[in-house]
Design a protein around this nucleic acid. Structure first.
Lengths: 244, 244
DNA sequence: GTTTGAACTTGTATTGCAGTTGTCTAGTAT
DNA sequence: ATACTAGACAACTGCAATACAAGTTCAAAC
């Protein structure tokens, strides 16, 4: 019933192979020509599939040399549209994460209160689509969970993927704020422009907070959507701000 | 005997298919042409159905590429949609609904695109807590469902209670906007102040939209909270704004 | 050991065609 | 006025086919 796009199917097939035996990091892939003949498509189509995997940070290439693996897929949920980046890609735009901060610091009071630890890694990133700034995301990770993270990896993947968390739940608080002077520069907007602010606490399966993030997004390009099935008391809804 | 509206029937058929097997987020729909031939209608009619589903936030399209799923409608029993008033009462404050508009009118284009009918009741109310304005809520109800509503009743009860329907789900879209001149007067704030805007589509158990509401709230006094259990981690999140 | 060059590889164009969405216009029926 | 059909055209995408430039590898020739 549903249509299929050839190069997306090939990208999916290759992605599956990368995770299987025999394809570790550094391994050379078959040439574009041989891939084209084995899949029975043209070289252009193979290249579009390879470029997609490059955007996902799985492979890379050198002219005259070939394509090689740089990482194996972390989680299988790459083809779903759970992250904004995946949605921008589906909409035919080129998402990018630009690293602003990557430092082991004492967390800000809010983050410290949530995570309950004094040494954290602060990762601050600017989200762009087609070189147009979309939003800023600042996240605090407890130091003991952040030792494997590198500057490269956090530019190409979401923290949820990198931390390999078995997500047991998250709480998101959405508010509207006026753009701060810093964010105005980053996002290319004037001070005071309404922004969508999302503060999220992610917990592991033992209900321990493992990630606290504060993000602001330009509401002209993003919106926050919730699907409500069975509304319990703690489900999505407005809440009174304490002390208001 | 009212004539059946073709594109509404087609929209309903497609909406049912989206929830069924094989149609996860990111999946491509058949082309408009093939849909037109399978349903036995013209392409224009298919497009009207697709545009409706777009307004509901279920699908999106790219020129030359096709239509693809961005979210699958959730359908479960839902007996209590939490209201702001309940939250304020729980916080020990005195909520009040002040009626601004109560008129049978043609719905605005956005509401019309979602509800798919030309005659609706528009109920606009100002929400207050302890005589302090906190937000404005405008809701469109299809006329045939609104005949029992009175000015008195909508001031004292939520529309979800009054409609007496078995509501089975809702999709909420949250964005940040600057306060309009009208809302600034109502809420006692200056023009351009960031406000939290919540557009909600409420569906009955057959996943048919029965209520569309647009509300703005002062973020200083309210915030929007979503709890994400591990199972439905995809039910809430950022989404790309159409046409941004 | 160096150099040369053939045979590979990727990078980057181009043309052409079919299929798809976006957007009109004209016309009919209820 | 609204729902619907039929058709036409522009603009975009997917894909094949081809060509050429530029980098890498490797072995034969010097």
């Amino acid at each position: 019933m549903a249509r299929e796009i050839l190069y997306l199917e090939i990208a999916r097939a290759l992605r599956d192979q990368l995770g299987s035996e025999g394809y570790g990091p550094g391994q050379l892939l078959p040439s574009e020509g041989s891939l084209a003949s084995t899949f029975g498509v043209s070289r252009v189509t193979v290249r579009k599939a390879l470029e997609r995997l490059t955007a996902e940070g799985l492979i890379d290439s050198r002219q005259g040399f070939g394509w090689f693996v740089v990482a194996v897929p972390l989680r299988q949920s790459l083809d779903t549209l759970t992250t904004i980046d995946a949605q921008f890609e589906a909409a035919g735009r080129r998402p990018e994460r630009r690293l602003l901060k990557f430092s082991f610091t004492r967390p800000e009071p809010r983050a410290r209160a949530v995570l309950g630890c004094n040494s954290t890694l602060l990762v601050s990133r600017l989200n762009l689509a087609d070189d147009e700034p979309i939003g800023r995301n600042s996240a605090w990770v407890p130091q003991d969970l952040a030792l494997d993270l590198t500057r490269r990896s956090v530019e190409q993947h979401s923290l949820h993927e990198l931390l390999g968390l078995v997500l047991a739940g998250a709480t998101q608080v959405v508010t509207a704020v006026g753009s701060s002077p810093e964010d105005s520069v980053l996002l290319g907007i004037s001070i005071g422009t309404p922004l969508l602010q999302i503060n999220r606490v992610t917990r592991d399966k033992r209900a321990r907070p493992v990630l606290y993030s504060e993000a602001v997004y330009n509401p002209l390009m993003t919106e926050f959507v919730t699907e409500l099935p069975a509304a319990s008391i703690e489900s999505a809804g407005l809440r009174v701000v304490q002390g208001a």
